[in-house]
Design a protein around this nucleic acid. Structure first.
Length: 843
RNA sequence: GCGGAAGUGGUGAAAUGGCAAACACACCAGCCUUAGGAGCUGGCGCCCAAAAGGCUUGCGGGUUCAAGUCCCGCCUUCCGCACCA
């Protein structure tokens, strides 16, 4: 009875044993220093927010990274595989309100819990480099970078309209507004408020951030496209229209200055300063403008901007076209945005769809000034928006192509001083102020005499006070801590007030991966030499939801650090992989859908190996993954078969004769010899290892890697009798089982460690060399060739491997079925693809 | 509206232009008994009683000796962007 239990694969016991062993060996997953003679490989998974619970999306993300890291170790690389915590942020404050737990305590407890879960999963992180962004040892460097950016003129403060989430009671960056709602509160509409804010000048890098995308060919095209759209570069012209009866000018931005002779009105945004001016002396206009503004706000908040019906009112004022001197009405329109371009446009109804719609509605003149190159004679269907035409009704510019006219008009504007060529970006500067407690204090001091004064480096870190009452009232919580607020001005020594806003948490995650390379440095954020050894990251892995936020900020930060002379690389990550979502019952796993599967449950029932391996087996990593518990059970049963087949024959594999003939299973004869089963099994083995290596290095289809291991194990199982009887030689058994375990190691590290030991091997399987495949042994000696007649499959013939076209053709023509089908017919042509197929063209 | 990805058995999926459905899950039949979330054997796209045969990768065309794969048009689903002047 007692022995029987041992015949069962028991993941709980095996995994517990190895957890203890690994815990006793903290250097197991440590990278070698930069002096290592192995090639470096930096594999990184996006650091999680410490919510306290891993979810399946994390498990999938980390299973992918871990399989890669382990395989790279086995292939001889010096691997850096770190993990950390994106530990600042609002949930800690909410938890404090709810449970009366200090944010720091709550966060650290969550980190401890999630770390336990990660350890339980057997993830190969070097915890010596662990980083938690909420600790002063980390966030002091956020402050340090902030000061460097102040010096570089990359920080400024301005009062501006900002996105305000009433739920978070704080400001959001543009990137954090999703469909008009808060990215953390999908149902909470974002409001616009006027506030003094700190901004980072990310737009200084707009062009470089855009250009760099072309070189990031290791990034998914999807992410690059999203970033391009977000940066939104647009080439055009700025032109000053005159304001009738005033020396003032109205500057408009247009990408189609060639259509300017067709401008029949000028449209201003409701928030345009001139509109305010007009409205001041015109109560009726004021009322109308407010209505337009309200419509615009509503549409923006509903995320339905494109669908809003265009409205506008004439202001009664007129603008003067600087090229023609023509006088056109000035309107205010609800479809004009103040925060793009100049907040003013020239309206050319004949050549712009929106302007056309507007003009049609209000009976504004529609004047064609571009004649399409095609259908020169017939009436043009307006609006005609293509640039494939020539100018008409445009004075001296008539007959020019659109491109020629744009150039000439720009030159003329520059010459006469009423305009110029201009490139504008949709990307806005990064507002980093947050009126929250649990974040990095912004290291600035407000002095009544000296103004804004940076905190000197030697006074860093500006420590976030820990004893603080979290309340729900608005405004920065730090403002209610006198010990924090009251400061001495570093410049004049007088009494001053400390800045009470904290930094956006995306600052934390913009550079954390550099800190990993030198995580305990107390002098500088990281040692440049060490960082240069590891950077750029060879493979970054995470969810596509960070395509714009985190990934654009990180690129900016890297360029900024490069310009500080701290690093040499222009981009943080060479390759980026975005894994698919974890789905259950047709929907993304989420608490609100009630379809969450707990990783702890899975690990408890099936073990960490089975849980991780299922996450890799059920779909290729870039696709969405449908979580089916039966599938996990299936993988667990498979691991049981592996366990049985290896333990059953382990004695033979490590027998004296097997070792003597083939230490490590490596020196076996390199030509296929032995009894047919042995030849067949070794062939399958070498085919499997070739396939896995290929799928691993090439296209990252871990699901087919796992399937290949399953096929191998199925063959071993089918040959159980021959293995038991000794028909297969001991050295061959040794090679088979050892290699199987090595191939399994990146996917099921616990079982691999256990079986590696079972096979009598010392040392970590992680440090054993990755199996190489011998093409000679992998080669089939007979292959099946499908024979088609007119493209239809008729039969399959066997020919010796390496048969030439002639031999294959002969075999095909000799086949019974083929002969009966071709009898009495004319075989017009025979196409032979050696090793692949034969097709007979029969008439 | 624009851009991207995807559409293959009951399910997850596989297939350098060359035998569609590997590997699994579920299901069915049988064996085993320590009655388990265990193990083993076999079956499992559709039509046909079976065999023979035929049909089959969202729909319609095309290229090719040969198309799930390449090209054109359409449909559906998901994702991103969306008055960006």
């Amino acid at each position: 009875m007692a022995d029987e239990k041992e015949l069962r694969y028991d993941p709980a016991t095996i995994e517990q044993k190895w957890l203890e062993r690994w815990a006793a060996d903290p250097k197991l997953y440590a990278a070698e220093p930069a002096t290592s003679n192995r090639p470096k490989y930096y594999v990184l998974e996006m650091l999680p927010y410490p919510s306290g619970q891993l979810h399946m999306g994390h498990v999938r993300n980390y299973a992918i990274g871990d399989a890669l890291a382990r395989q790279m170790w086995m292939r001889g690389y010096n691997v850096l595989h770190p993990m950390g915590w994106d530990a600042f942020g609002l949930p800690a404050e909410n938890a404090a309100l709810k449970n009366n737990t200090p944010p720091r305590e709550w966060t650290l407890a969550n980190i401890a819990a999630m770390k336990r879960q990660m350890l339980r999963l057997g993830l190969s992180y070097d915890w010596a480099t662990e980083v938690a962004t909420c600790l002063p040892e980390y966030y002091r460097w956020n402050q340090w970078f902030f000061l460097r950016m102040v010096e570089k003129g990359l920080v400024y403060r301005k009062k501006s309209k900002v996105n305000w989430c009433p739920e978070c009671a704080t400001v959001l960056a543009n990137e954090q507004v999703v469909n008009g709602c808060c990215w953390r509160h999908e149902d909470t509409l974002v409001e616009q408020r006027d506030l003094e804010q700190w901004f980072l000048r990310i737009t200084a890098y707009a062009q470089e951030l855009l250009d760099g995308l072309d070189k990031l060919d290791g990034w998914p095209e999807k992410v690059r496209t999203m970033q391009r759209n977000w940066i939104g570069r647009s080439e055009g012209t700025e032109v000053d229209f005159g304001l009738e009866g005033s020396p003032k000018k109205i500057r408009v931005f247009t990408t189609r200055v060639d259509t300017i002779f067709g401008a029949t009105s000028v449209q201003l945004a409701p928030e345009h300063p001139l509109i305010k001016e007009f409205a001041a002396s015109d109560a009726k206009l004021k009322e109308q403008v407010e209505k337009l503004l309200e419509e615009q706000r509503k549409a923006r908040e509903e995320g339905d901007v494109g669908a809003i019906e265009k409205h506008g009112v004439p202001t009664g004022r007129f603008a003067i076209n600087p090229y023609s001197g023509e006088r056109v009405q000035i309107w205010v329109g609800n479809y004009i945005l103040m925060d793009y371009g100049t907040g003013a446009i020239m309206s050319v109804p004949a050549h712009d769809e929106r302007d056309f719609e507007f003009a049609t509605k209000y009976g504004i003149e529609i004047r064609q000034v571009i004649q399409p190159v095609q259908d020169k004679d017939g009436a043009t269907l307006l609006p005609f928006c293509s640039e494939d035409g020539v100018l008409v009704n445009s004075g001296e510019y008539d007959g020019k192509t659109c491109a020629q006219a744009q150039k000439l008009l720009q030159e003329s504007a520059t010459l006469q001083g009423f305009g110029e060529a201009k490139v504008i970006f949709r990307l806005k500067d990064w507002g980093v102020s947050r009126q929250r407690y649990w974040g990095t204090p912004i290291p600035m001091i407000h002095c009544e005499r000296c103004g804004l004064v940076p905190v000197p480096d030697e006074q860093l870190p500006v420590i976030l006070p820990e004893r603080i009452e979290i309340t729900q009232q608005g405004g920065s919580p730090l403002g209610r801590v006198p010990d924090f607020v009251n400061a001495t001005c570093p410049r004049c020594g007088g009494a001053a007030r400390r800045e009470t806003d904290t930094m956006d948490t995306f600052v934390d995650s913009s550079w954390y991966f550099y800190r990993y390379t030198d995580a305990r440095n107390t002098k500088v954020p990281f040692d440049p030499v060490t960082a240069q050894y590891w950077f750029p990251i060879d493979q970054y892995i995470g969810g596509v939801e960070h395509a714009i936020l985190h990934l654009i900020y990180s690129r900016f930060w890297t360029k900024m650090m490069r310009d500080l002379g701290m690093i040499k690389n222009d981009e943080p990550a060479q390759r980026l992989f975005t894994q698919g979502m974890v789905i259950k019952d047709g929907a993304k796993m989420s608490k609100s859908k009630g379809n969450v599967v707990s990783p702890d449950d899975m690990v408890a029932r099936y073990g960490a190996d089975a849980t991780r391996m299922y996450a890799l087996f059920a779909a290729p990593p870039d696709r969405d993954l449908d979580w089916q518990e039966d599938g996990v059970a299936g993988v667990s049963r498979f691991l049981g078969r592996v366990w049985r087949v290896v333990t059953k024959h382990a004695q033979l594999a490590k027998s004296a004769s097997a070792r003597a003939a083939a230490p490590n299973g490596r020196d076996l004869r390199r030509t296929p010899e032995g009894n047919p089963t042995e030849v067949k099994l070794r062939r399958k083995l070498h085919q499997t290892s070739a396939k896995i290596t290929q799928d691993f290095t090439g296209r990252w289809h871990f699901n087919t890697c796992v399937a290949a291991i399953m096929e191998l194990v199925n063959e071993l199982q089918n040959a159980d009798a021959q293995l038991t009887s000794g028909e297969v030689s001991a050295p061959a058994v040794g090679e088979l089982l050892r290699t199987l375990v090595l191939l399994l190691a990146p996917f099921a590290p616990f079982l691999a460690a256990e079986l590696w030991e079972e096979l009598g091997e010392d040392g970590a399987v992680l440090r054993a060399p990755w199996p190489t495949s011998d093409p000679e042994l992998a080669k089939e000696d007979e292959i099946e060739i499908p024979v088609q007649i007119n493209g239809k499959l008729v039969n399959v013939v066997k020919v010796p491997a390496g048969s030439d076209a002639k031999g294959i053709e002969a075999a095909a023509l000799a086949d019974e079925k083929v002969r009966s089908r071709t009898a009495g017919k004319n075989v017009a042509k025979v196409i032979v693809v050696p090793g692949r197929a034969v097709n007979l063209v029969v008439k």
